[in-house]
């Protein structure tokens, strides 16, 4: 145990040390590490409207066409027209800065495997989508100097709304808390069409706890989701949804990719079909069914993929 005078001395020494090291690496709690420039460079991907954060490199509209066909068309459609996903025509209608398009493609696309494009590819894809929207000419080349200067059609329409930017913002819609005789005629002005719930949602009685007296009896627990989990064979139709296969394929008609029935017809009886399709799905490819490539699929486990392929091959031929 230090005597008081010695303690004061030690304390003074600590204080001196603190003064001598103003940029103390460990902070008040001594937690965390200093981030190195290399670490920051790898993660620092955000891009601002003023161009801050845009990397070197460049890409043209025509280069973008190739990048787009290989990576984007399978979901967005050949000309960005697909309504199944975010329509790329929204870029012209809603987006206020071209830099945001670069930032988003760079961080979140292509959907099955994001952050896989090079800076040049992202610039090119950005240029191509801007051209699809008639915002830049066909000879446009996107880079860190040109992109922030692109004037987007929606630029002047987009404005911050202070009413919802702070707790003290002024609301734009006002109601008053009337308590008695607040309305004369009250009528139902809109409701769900007859049959709508049954057709889209099925029997919704099981959405409620049967125990509560406001509900009809739900089906027994043995019929509920999860009760059949012990089943040995994977539920392929469910897997097709889980791994977004159905985004591009349907059973009996071409969507972006071929109908499962057409795949079955082509490969049924082919001894190497399972291995061939396994490779095709895992690695992706194009040319068999048209120019739009199928992206590589890493989602399904080997067992799930085998079940999917056997299911596809078992589809009856179209009549």
């Amino acid at each position: 145990m230090l005597k008081p005078d010695r303690m004061a001395g030690a304390l003074a020494a600590v204080l001196l040390l603190a003064v001598a090291l103003p940029a103390q690496a460990q902070g008040k709690y001594g937690l965390g590490q200093k981030a190195t420039p290399e670490q920051i460079a790898g993660w620092n991907i955000d891009v601002r409207p003023d161009g801050a954060g845009l990397p070197g490199g460049q890409g043209s509209v025509s280069e973008g066409n190739e990048v787009y066909d290989a990576n984007c068309a399978s979901c967005h459609g050949t000309f960005g027209e697909s309504n199944s996903y975010i329509s790329l025509t929204n870029v012209g209608a809603r987006l206020n800065y071209a830099t945001t398009l670069f930032d988003y493609i760079n961080r979140a696309m292509p959907f099955p495997h994001s952050k896989a494009l090079t800076a040049n590819q992202v610039y090119a894809a950005t240029a191509y989508v801007l051209n699809l929207n008639d915002i830049v000419p066909a000879d446009f080349v996107a880079n860190k100097d040109t992109l922030p200067k692109v004037k987007m059609p929606a630029h002047d329409k987009v404005k911050p709304f202070p009413g919802l930017m702070s707790v003290k913002g002024t609301p734009d819609v006002k109601n008053v808390a009337c308590m008695k005789d607040c309305a004369k005629d009250v009528k139902v002005t809109a409701s769900l069409p007859a049959g709508f719930v049954e057709n889209l949602y099925g029997d919704i009685r099981d959405n409620f706890r049967g125990l509560q007296t406001m509900n009809e009896q739900a089906p027994p627990a043995t019929e509920l989701p999860g009760a059949a989990d012990a089943k040995a064979t994977p539920d392929v139709p469910k897997l097709l949804g889980t791994y977004a296969c159905t985004a591009c394929h349907a059973v009996d008609h071409k969507v972006v990719g071929p109908a499962f029935q057409d795949v079955a017809a082509k490969y049924q009886g082919n001894a190497g079909a399972v291995q061939h399709l396994t490779d095709k799905i895992r690695k992706g490819g194009s040319g068999v069914w048209g120019p739009i490539p199928m992206p590589p699929q890493s989602g399904p486990s080997d067992a799930e993929l085998a079940a999917i392929i056997h299911w596809v091959l078992s589809q009856p031929a179209k009549k």
Binding site: R94, N96, Y104, K157, V158, P160, F161, G163, L164
Partner: peptide, 17 residues
């Protein structure tokens, strides 16, 4: 911008709501 912004009847788009 593209998402989580609000299109108003006058054609303007509210941002940072």
């Amino acid at each position: 911008s593209l998402q989580y912004s609000d299109a108003m009847p006058d054609g303007s788009i509210r941002q940072y709501t």
